[in-house]
Design a protein around this nucleic acid. Structure first.
Lengths: 320, 320
DNA sequence: TGCGCTCATGTTAGCGATAAAGTCATTCTT
DNA sequence: AAGAATGACTTTATCGCTAACATGAGCGCA
């Protein structure tokens, strides 16, 4: 018991004993068993973070935000990856919940019924991130992708473009990309404009795919004067293609992507894009969990934070 | 006890009871408490994976390899990030070991004394990955970065370049980059060649930094005919800069990077690079842990797998 | 009828920590 | 100087499971 108190820095141990314990622990290479500790104290300093992928830059950046905040606390993130697969999500969630974490941060608002039931029944803070278009189980931090799509559509129309093509991922399960697309077409429709052409890809290097798709679309539909990409990586590929081909950007063809990835800073031209506030989302989500895990009186929960992405017009969204 | 048996699929339960249990569990939304289970059985299905960073593509790819293999088993990876900081590594390791995982996969061979002591004392399989230039604690999977540097140096010399500049990260703690650099200069020295200029960066967008550093170096040392970059991202920035400036690549200036990131496929020219075998490393490491966790008779351990990276000459390493 | 055997289920005793209450010298109070 | 208060430990019970053993019904076979 005294050892336990020393190692957790709880009061009521004399300086002398504290030192003796610490030294003995070091000599023995003693590492406390958190499993036993957690079982006894009914407290686990883990936060489950469930995200679809690590292989585009967006979720690692969210993780950065989460880490920033949790580093100040005794909480530790544990990452699970779903690959945009609802069954995997369910499994990963079950697995993580069975470790009784102090909170869950999970990407998206769309989950299987079973997953939703688990989250509700878990009795811990749940923060759904990235998206605010829909009903949250508990708290929620993100941006409205529908609104983001609309905003970009309006900016494009205002710049004078009318023959607009869309290029994106062939991922029925990427709900956020879908919502952006819906918002985009909706805002165009309001002005009587319809997408002229569209193209979807799957797998492979996004940059290369952006190149290929852009070539295909411009050949197929030469009258196109604007290309809206569902992410910056394919947008960058398209931009490089246009520059290669001597296509005037943004005079002849305008371009825009989505996300504001750091990569873009190094391109010959700045691609128009929209910041998805990823670090802030991570920070805010972690903050909600951290707050609730210290508060004694249950604060009710249900926080809802909608951030507003800003258009960064760069050099590719300007009718000259 | 019967419930426990049903949920873990251990024999000796009648079909009828099994179904009744499963149904009751579902009704109640019962999620077993792994903490208690682990404490009782002294078995934990977690594998600690400790890596320096998530924000360049290299570690996510290693994770992909690890996941591929562990998905076939009942093991689950748990990721910890150190930001190339030895103290953080120590802390993360301590935290993870206190959950008594079934194995540890950790990047690099350089760790603090305390970290090494913990790893040795943990009594579980430890696989150090990415690097084979040094002494492993237990098993080890990776490539020799020193050899990789030498190999690239020789390829560059063979192609006829002599005025070689080096551009890399200012990271005294990125031991692998350092070893590559050492191998590189060593092989050059053997042929009586010395690096003409060098430049290091810190933080910021690697692509943009590659651009800036390349510009700075070519202005400062115009006689340079080859640029060796410590990673593909800055190499890509340099390549874009050269193309922008109308510098003939690879005639006037040759370029090479390191890593073989997927991104490169979309560039106007293929940057010469070297594949670091990241997915294979992940797979092999996970396989070692998986094997050892099923074997009863201790297999001794100490596996050592050195993979051989291959030069991909691309379009930027060819004297015309 | 009784012995051994199998199969399904039940009991008991931990796993290694912590919460909460208990002990027992000291030190303070008035 | 007696009682209260404090400080520094100790003891005991418990967290929710699982290993290992115990039980006991049902069956075959001599």
């Amino acid at each position: 018991m005294t050892v336990s108190r020393v190692l957790r820095n709880r009061g009521d141990v004399s300086q002398a004993t504290r030192e003796r314990v610490l030294e003995a622990a070091k000599d023995l290479g003693y590492v406390p068993n958190k499993i036993a500790g957690a079982l006894a104290s009914q407290r686990v300093n883990l936060v489950a973070v469930i995200i679809p992928s690590l292989s585009n830059m967006v979720f690692p950046e969210v993780m950065t935000g989460i880490n920033e905040v949790l580093d100040e606390t005794s909480l530790q993130p544990v990452v699970g990856v779903t690959n945009y697969n609802p069954e995997r999500e369910e499994k990963v969630l079950y697995e993580m919940l069975s470790w009784r974490p102090s909170g869950v941060i999970i990407a998206g608002l769309e989950h299987s019924d079973a997953a939703k039931a688990m989250l509700k029944a878990a009795g811990i803070p749940v923060v759904e991130i990235m998206d605010t278009d829909g009903l949250a189980i508990d708290a929620c931090v993100g941006i409205s992708h529908r609104r983001a799509g609309r905003k970009m559509a309006n900016a494009i129309l205002k710049a004078g473009y009318r023959n607009i093509g869309f290029l994106g991922t062939k991922m029925p399960l990427d709900h956020r990309a879908r919502k952006r697309f819906e918002g985009f077409t909706e805002a165009l429709a309001k002005e009587g404009v319809e997408i002229v052409d569209r193209e979807f890809y799957e797998g492979g290097s996004a940059l290369a795919k952006g190149r290929e798709m852009t070539e295909a679309m411009l050949k197929r539909t030469p009258e196109i004067d604007f290309l809206y990409y569902s992410n910056d990586m394919i947008g960058a590929g398209g931009l490089l293609y246009c520059l290669d081909q001597g296509i005037k950007v943004p005079g002849q063809v305008g371009l825009a992507g989505f996300n504001g990835v750091e990569l873009l800073d190094g391109l010959p031209r700045q691609l128009a894009t929209m910041d998805a506030c990823r670090i802030e989302i991570g920070r805010a989500a972690a903050q909600i969990i951290a707050n609730r895990s210290t508060e004694k009186g249950d604060s009710g929960g249900g926080e809802r934070i909608e951030l507003t992405p800003k258009i960064q017009p760069g050099d590719t969204l300007r009718r000259r």
